[in-house]
Simulated assay, not measured.
Amino acid sequence: MSNYYNVPVVGIDVSADFSMVAILAPNGDIYRKPFKINHDASSFNYLLEQIKKVEEEFATKIALFMEATGIYHLTLFYFLQDNEVNSFVINPLVTNCTKNKNIRKVKNDKTDAISIAKLGKYENIKASSWLDTSVYTLRNLWLEYYDLVDSRANLKKKLSSDLRLTFPGYQDGFSDITGNTSLAILEAYSTPETIAKAPKDEVVNLLSTHSRKGILWAQKVYIKLMMATENARAIGVKYVAFSSKIQRYLNLLSANTTEIDTLLNQIKDILTSESLSEAFRQGVKLLTTLSGVGFITAVTIVCEIGDITRFKKSKQLTAFFGIDPSVNQSGKFNSTQNKMSK
């Protein structure tokens, strides 16, 4: 049985710009017709007033349930938590399994709000009341970090493709064409012709300075670059915009790298601040001691777990990540070849 069987319950169906609210009395009757609130301060305060009226009438605290809807529910949930309303977020997978139990299919915002209220009132479901703005900020930062890393990877692929067409053989001189040494060469000599015309000592010195591998290594790379310029004359695809295109790639890669470094510094600043719990920081520290788990990976995992005290057993955490085996059993049949649950 639900812990909120004998108390008034509020169900909210959240949309992008507005939400529908349904209120159930302690006996399960609809307290008033479902009503709409916009996502603005005046509507949120109006909802708060209605909640207080219900609590005063029945002399007990309400329980409020809403469905997780990407980012749309967060402002309302944070507002309610900040005003000490007993509010919970339900996983959409749970609500989708319980909606429309009637034979006649009805789907609208009002019925969805009532369904969510009934679900919270009568069903013993898993719901979250945890929200930490610092952790949420961290989560957004590492999502931006991964987006920028993906963007940088795409830029590298495009640069590599263009160099293979216009400067075949260039990649033979460098283990990473987007490394500091290669980028310095492309910055100074953006076409095969400019490298071929440049004084040897100048190119070798540039290679040696940025690589820190010595003159002998720089001279070997110079020879490979000269061979690449010969290839470019013979088989390279020539077009006028190549030089400016290379420069755009270099500018974008530089800006991308700067943004990534800025994000990493912001993440580290939050982790060292007092806004995060000691348990959170300790979780990140412990994960980084595992082989193969880097700093960002550790932050990502701990952010997704959230308040680890929610999980009483290791099996619950395993199920939360969806890496536990699914179950397929019927009668005497018991499958032994099951996929992971998620």
Rank of each mutant, 00 (worst) to 15 (best):
M1H: 12
M1V: 13
Y4N: 14
A22N: 13
A22F: 09
I30R: 13
I30W: 04
I30L: 15
Y31N: 07
P34D: 04
P34N: 10
I37Y: 05
I37W: 01
N38F: 15
H39V: 05
F44P: 01
F44L: 14
N45C: 13
L47C: 04
Q50P: 02
Q50S: 07
Q50W: 02
K52C: 03
V54W: 00
V54E: 00
E57G: 07
A59N: 12
T60M: 15
K61Y: 09
I62N: 05
A63G: 08
T75K: 05
L76Q: 03
N83D: 10
N86S: 10
N86V: 04
I90M: 08
L93A: 15
T95K: 06
N96E: 10
K99L: 15
R104D: 07
R104K: 15
K107I: 07
K110T: 13
T111Q: 13
I114C: 03
G120A: 03
N124W: 07
K126C: 11
L131P: 09
L131F: 15
D132L: 10
T133G: 02
T133E: 11
L138G: 02
L138D: 08
R139Y: 03
R139Q: 12
L143S: 13
L143C: 06
Y145E: 03
D150G: 12
D150F: 05
S151Q: 09
R152A: 14
L155T: 00
K158Y: 13
L159S: 07
L159I: 08
S160N: 12
S161T: 13
R164L: 11
L165N: 13
T166I: 01
Q171M: 14
F174W: 03
S175D: 10
I177K: 05
G179D: 04
G179T: 09
N180A: 12
T181Y: 02
T181G: 06
S182D: 01
A184P: 01
I185D: 00
I185G: 00
L186P: 01
A188H: 07
E193R: 10
K197V: 06
K197W: 07
K200N: 08
E202Y: 10
L206C: 02
T209G: 02
K213M: 07
G214D: 09
I215P: 04
I215F: 14
W217P: 07
Q219M: 15
Y222A: 03
L225E: 04
M226P: 00
M226R: 12
T229A: 05
E230R: 13
R233F: 09
G236M: 11
K238A: 11
R248A: 11
R248K: 13
Y249P: 00
T257H: 03
T262F: 11
L263C: 05
N265L: 15
N265D: 15
Q266P: 05
I267D: 00
D269F: 09
I270Y: 07
S273H: 06
E274D: 15
S275V: 15
L276D: 09
A279P: 05
Q282P: 01
G283W: 07
V284R: 01
V293I: 12
A298M: 04
V299P: 00
T300F: 14
C303K: 02
C303F: 01
C303W: 02
G306D: 06
R310S: 07
K315P: 10
L317D: 03
F320R: 01
G322P: 09
I323R: 06
D324W: 00
G331H: 01
K332A: 08
K332T: 13
F333C: 02
